[in-house]
């Protein structure tokens, strides 16, 4: 095994007025290292000015998504060993504005998340005396959609979001679906309003790249398809039975 490997890292510092470029770093190749360890090595020993986000290093905080050899991945879960002989190209997640180096601007996601009301909506809130009942099967109905760690890999993989930034996007639709399918929730129609005048959803061509790149096996593509079916049904229902109220 070669004992060194080269990383080609995207650099961009807006206050320098410099153009984006790639910088090469030769680093020791250690069997146990993930890409994030390599970036930390660069930061500590070669170049303190390299900027990127990270925190938990165990695939749950969702901070460290980047493009590695043109694929969106969590860098804490991508082993260097699998990328031999290199060079390995590391870029910020695609489809997002770049703040600096490997740091993207994800404020758009947070705005959109709020719009779909990702919280339990009840006709009336019960006092906190006992739990709402939910069987294991009812939990299983929405559980996978609740596993989203907001890592943004699906947005980076989504061809529609790339072309149409207005698109609510895979993770947010999956999270809306997470609440719609929860038997404790009565907010389906309130959320549908936020999504119904959505142009992007109808453009989703079910390529499914969002589901393929998800590190937590959430299936946003499936959520979007269910929404489309539900949306179409609701449209017909409202047209034919205007007195029938959706859940």
């Amino acid at each position: 095994m070669a004992d060194k490997i080269t990383l080609e890292v995207f650099r961009y510092r807006p206050d320098d007025n410099s153009e984006p470029s790639f910088q090469k770093y030769m680093i020791p190749l250690q069997r146990d290292w993930v890409i994030l360890d390599a970036l930390n090595y660069i930061k500590d020993h070669i170049d303190g000015t390299l900027s990127y986000r990270w925190s938990c290093r165990m695939g749950i905080c969702g901070s460290c998504g980047m493009m590695v050899n043109e694929k969106p991945v969590l860098t804490c879960a991508a082993f260097l060993e699998n990328l031999i002989p290199g060079p390995v190209r590391i870029e910020p997640l695609e489809n997002f504005p770049v703040v600096r180096d490997l740091v993207i601007d994800m404020r758009d996601f947070l705005e959109k998340l709020k719009r779909v009301k990702p919280w339990i909506i009840r006709e009336q809130e019960d006092p906190a005396i006992e739990e709402y009942k939910q069987t294991p099967d009812q939990l299983a109905d929405f559980k996978q959609y609740s596993m989203c760690i907001n890592c943004m890999l699906c947005y980076s993989a989504c061809p529609v979001y790339g072309l149409e930034p207005e698109f609510t996007g895979p993770a947010v639709i999956a999270l809306a679906q997470r609440y719609n399918m929860d038997n404790r929730d009565h907010g389906n129609s309130a959320r549908m309003d936020a999504l119904s005048d959505e142009s992007g959803m109808w453009q989703c061509t079910f390529i499914g790249d969002c589901s393929k790149v998800c590190p937590k096996k959430v299936d946003p593509a499936g959520a979007i398809q269910r929404y489309k079916v539900h949306g179409a049904n609701t449209w017909w229902k409202n047209l034919l039975l205007p007195w029938a109220k959706d859940k």
Binding site: I120, R122, E131, T135, Q138
Partner: peptide, 13 residues
Amino acid sequence: EHWGCPWSRQKDG
């Protein structure tokens, strides 16, 4: 729980 935390459940809910 009322806010939606997906607690693991017994068969009776």
